[in-house]
Simulated scan of single mutants.
Amino acid sequence: MGQFSLSNIFHLGLKELRSLAADKVLLGLIVWAFSGAIYEAATGVSQELHNAPVAIVDEDVSPLSARLAGALYPPYFKTPELIRLDQVDAAMNSNKYAFVLVIPANFQRDAAAGRQPEVQLNIDATLVSQAFIGASYITQIVSGEVGEYLTGRRDAATSPIRLTTRARFNPNLTGLWFGGVMEAINNVTMLTIILVGAAFIREREHGTIEHLLVMPLRPFEIMMAKIWANGLAVLIGVAFALGVMVRHVLAVPIAGSLTLFLAAAALYLFAAASIGIFLCTIARSMPQLGLLIIMTIISLQLLSGGVTPQESMPAIIQNIMAATPTTYFVRLAQGVLYRGAGLVEIWPDMLMMAGVGAVFFGIALFRFRKAVTQTQL
């Protein structure tokens, strides 16, 4: 009976693959999600300061003020433009500049006399990430240039220690390295739930689910067939995304074993697909499923640790997300792809992911069996 069950699962899965191949919309979604979307997410959203427009109000017109203006240069900032003080408000209101540095009159004389003159930095804080990073950069640049001009040293005072900063795994702090990999990880969740969910709803809307029910098939066989078939399509897609788009097109180094990541991803596909089937047992139509998927995917992606570290979230959110497989998948995926973690480091997350996935699969199987029984009656 076990061999017969495996045969049914295999042939039902082949049917799913043929149905997927005939659906041009879903095929296009898969291709875009693991190619163009990866490139767009990596290059379209900058995580660092780049060509920020900046202006300077120089009321001192001294060698020191000219030195400050010359210290703001590409690629972090555009070449600074000189404007008058009465032009600042209008320029900021029109979103012409992200930063305006106002250097007061007698700035160099007061600095040399030790009077600690104030330099005003106006920031367009609607650009939140750019404003935070740019303000820090400009503050360091101004302090360093003034200190070097006055004392010949970039640090204003001698420190009893020397702090050496070392950035691990991404030494240049390049945001592109993060965006492409995380988009691939997030798309695994999104496409698995969408494909499996759409397969079930399509069967229901076309009436073919009744054809399956009159055949000697078990609900377990139907579910597993849809899981392995659609999961295989997603697994091939993410392998292409990481092996071609991330590693070669974006030139992002992958620290760990791609084979280990794909093995963990295959286990996660089972868990994510179970969530998709569970949603199908709740929805009665494709629009309802779409609404449920939107709420589910957004929550999983935002709260799983891929966008914001879970340590910064409220404890109740962390406890809730501990009951989802996405949390463990994101953590182990980042460990393997970013830090080169091996099986020894990620096996607890794989075990937890498999356990949570088994719970969702059991719930989905129970609800699907109940739906089958009601249909047969």
Score class of each variant (00 low, 15 high):
residue 100 V to Q: 07
residue 62 S to R: 05
residue 43 T to S: 09
residue 90 A to P: 05
residue 66 A to Q: 14
residue 61 V to Y: 07
residue 70 G to W: 00
residue 42 A to C: 04
residue 90 A to M: 04
residue 51 N to Y: 11
residue 52 A to F: 12
residue 73 Y to T: 10
residue 92 M to Q: 10
residue 94 S to K: 05
residue 61 V to T: 10
residue 94 S to P: 00
residue 84 R to N: 06
residue 94 S to I: 04
residue 39 Y to N: 01
residue 54 V to C: 02
residue 61 V to Q: 13
residue 101 L to C: 12
residue 96 K to M: 08
residue 97 Y to T: 07
residue 70 G to M: 03
residue 83 I to Y: 10
residue 77 F to R: 00
residue 100 V to R: 08
residue 72 L to S: 02
residue 46 S to L: 08
residue 72 L to W: 00
residue 65 S to V: 05
residue 91 A to T: 08
residue 41 A to E: 13
residue 99 F to Y: 15
residue 89 D to V: 12
residue 39 Y to G: 04
residue 46 S to T: 03
residue 79 T to N: 09
residue 95 N to S: 15
residue 64 L to R: 08
residue 67 R to E: 10
residue 90 A to F: 10
residue 61 V to L: 13
residue 97 Y to V: 06
residue 93 N to W: 05
residue 56 I to S: 01
residue 38 I to A: 07
residue 37 A to R: 01
residue 77 F to S: 05
residue 48 E to L: 09
residue 60 D to E: 10
residue 91 A to K: 10
residue 84 R to D: 15
residue 62 S to C: 13
residue 65 S to L: 06
residue 65 S to R: 03
residue 71 A to S: 14
residue 45 V to E: 13
residue 47 Q to R: 03
residue 96 K to P: 00
residue 55 A to Q: 11
residue 80 P to G: 13
residue 66 A to F: 14
residue 53 P to I: 01
residue 69 A to G: 08
residue 71 A to C: 13
residue 90 A to R: 09
residue 48 E to T: 05
residue 57 V to D: 01
residue 98 A to K: 01
residue 102 V to N: 13
residue 66 A to C: 11
residue 75 P to H: 13
residue 42 A to T: 06
residue 83 I to D: 07
residue 39 Y to T: 03
residue 100 V to M: 12
residue 87 Q to F: 03
residue 49 L to S: 09
residue 88 V to N: 01
residue 62 S to A: 03
residue 67 R to T: 11
residue 49 L to G: 01
residue 76 Y to D: 14
residue 78 K to W: 00
residue 92 M to I: 05
residue 50 H to M: 07
residue 63 P to G: 07
residue 50 H to C: 03
residue 88 V to R: 02
residue 77 F to Q: 02
residue 96 K to G: 15
residue 78 K to M: 14
residue 78 K to E: 14
residue 43 T to Q: 09
residue 51 N to R: 11
residue 98 A to C: 07
residue 54 V to W: 00
residue 63 P to E: 10
residue 87 Q to W: 02
residue 92 M to W: 11
residue 56 I to V: 10
residue 51 N to K: 15
residue 101 L to N: 06
residue 94 S to F: 06
residue 88 V to A: 04
residue 64 L to T: 07
residue 100 V to C: 06
residue 44 G to P: 11
residue 89 D to N: 15
residue 40 E to D: 03
residue 38 I to E: 06
residue 46 S to G: 08
residue 75 P to C: 15
residue 68 L to E: 05
residue 71 A to I: 11
residue 54 V to K: 03
residue 69 A to W: 00
residue 78 K to I: 06
residue 51 N to W: 06
residue 78 K to R: 15
residue 84 R to L: 11
residue 43 T to Y: 07
residue 44 G to Q: 08
residue 65 S to P: 01
residue 95 N to K: 14
residue 86 D to T: 05
residue 94 S to W: 05
residue 49 L to T: 08
residue 72 L to Q: 02
residue 89 D to C: 05
residue 86 D to C: 03
residue 45 V to I: 14
residue 95 N to H: 15
residue 85 L to S: 11
residue 87 Q to H: 02
residue 79 T to V: 15
residue 79 T to Y: 05
residue 71 A to V: 10
residue 44 G to I: 11
residue 66 A to M: 13
residue 100 V to G: 06
residue 57 V to C: 01
residue 97 Y to R: 06
residue 95 N to P: 00
residue 88 V to P: 01
residue 54 V to H: 00
residue 38 I to L: 07
residue 81 E to R: 13
residue 77 F to E: 01
residue 74 P to Q: 14
residue 75 P to I: 12
residue 101 L to E: 14
residue 83 I to S: 08
residue 68 L to R: 04
